[in-house]
Simulated assay, not measured.
Amino acid sequence: MSSVCEPVRPLLLGTRRAVVDGHPICAACGTAAVPVGPDRWRHREPNEPYPYDSPWLAPVTWAGLRDLTGFADFTARYPDVARGVSEEDWREGRRRWAAYQEQLDRPGENPLLRLVTILAGGRVTPGFLPVPEPLARVLDLDGRRRELAARFSWAIPTEAALGLAGDHGPLLEVGAGTGYWAALLRARGVDVRPTDAEPAGDTYHRGGRVWTEVTRAVAVDAVNAWPDRTLLVCWPPPDDDAAGYAAVRAYAGDTVLYIGGGADGPTGTARLHRELDLNWTVTDELALPSWPGIPDRLTVWRRSPVRRPLRIRDRCPQCTRFVPTGWTGRCDRCVHARPAALALRSGAHRIEYTREMLVRMPAALRAALERSTARCGPPPED
């Protein structure tokens, strides 16, 4: 195989490497491509675990960046990151990294906003952070997002957002995590009761500190215990109705504050978004600083005078039978009766490829998908 593909090169889709089962693939045959040095690759051997911790695939770290003496050292140390990165990007990224690290553990009035402002180059406005893609790779911006979310919050509070939330106090926050928003609100004199089923240290804030006392309570229990407070829901997960939808349904008040994205984003389940759209009306909204590709806002919802039942049901696009709420794609019966040319399992969902889609994609990508460990259903026809 190697002799046929030499030199082994990873498949590119535009400027990004094609990734199947979490690793790059050979542009010629679709086999997993393993880095062995700066821009040097080989095929993975049969039954060999993929070296995900390879230094040649690692994102930039401050420990790795600060000791490099020049741009040439950077491109040699981080060849995967350095594709399309200019020397100016590298210098600016290094400057922002240094400022970020210097401020990371310093106290302040709103340290999350301060650190995000540093990453964004000194100025943050509502909307996506203005960080060009090459510079974002030098900063490993997605890594910074996860790091700051674990320490503080998934959503970035601003003075305007805190003011708008405070106008609706007293508040009950469910899913408060580290209590970061609640701590900033309390510092401004707002009466807020933060609650969470697993305060800090949970799946979404592993390793984070608690910024203020957070009461341990599942969302519905919290709503029932403090019914006279305005409900604040911040970044409920997209796969857990208990964290968002159930709380809103159990809530007897007239105003809900929701922090997160829309129905096509990473926050809130399909049921939660449908409940808000059907039985609540937006009375105020405020865009928040958002990580690239993840729109975020604070929305104030007012209960409609007459409740309408949530009768919207998801249906299979082929046979129109009902499928679980939020499900994408065809139902299991249709898939069994008429299998797709290729199907992959992605979490709780299934991604289907038609014969026409497979014909149009690069041969190496098709070969890799056909060998994928996420493959489900019968093998494709020859």
Rank of each mutant, 00 (worst) to 15 (best):
A187F: 02
A243Q: 05
V248H: 02
V256T: 06
R95A: 15
L344K: 10
D196M: 02
E285K: 14
G265K: 05
A243G: 00
L344M: 10
A343V: 07
H273V: 05
G169T: 08
R308W: 09
A219Y: 00
L172C: 02
T31V: 13
T373M: 06
Q103N: 14
E92S: 08
W181V: 05
D167N: 14
W235Y: 11
P134Q: 12
G377N: 07
S2I: 12
Y245F: 14
A32D: 13
A28K: 04
A197T: 09
D21N: 10
T373L: 07
A183Y: 08
A343H: 08
L68N: 09
G260F: 03
D140M: 03
A183E: 12
A155W: 03
P289M: 09
R144S: 11
V34Q: 06
R94A: 14
D202W: 07
S2M: 06
G108C: 08
R249N: 00
R44P: 03
A183L: 08
G201I: 02
H349C: 01
L232M: 11
L141E: 05
P237W: 07
A28W: 01
D264Y: 00
D202A: 15
H23W: 10
G207I: 11
V282T: 15
S2V: 13
R274Q: 11
P362V: 07
L119M: 13
L342K: 08
V233E: 02
P134G: 11
A287F: 00
R271G: 00
R209M: 11
L185T: 12
P107E: 07
R307W: 02
P134K: 14
T117E: 06
F322G: 04
C316P: 06
D21V: 08
A160F: 08
R44M: 02
D284G: 07
D314E: 13
V4W: 09
P379Y: 02
D314P: 08
V190E: 13
D202N: 15
R146M: 13
A160L: 10
S54G: 12
H43D: 06
G244M: 00
R371F: 02
V256P: 01
E275N: 12
R77K: 15
V306P: 08
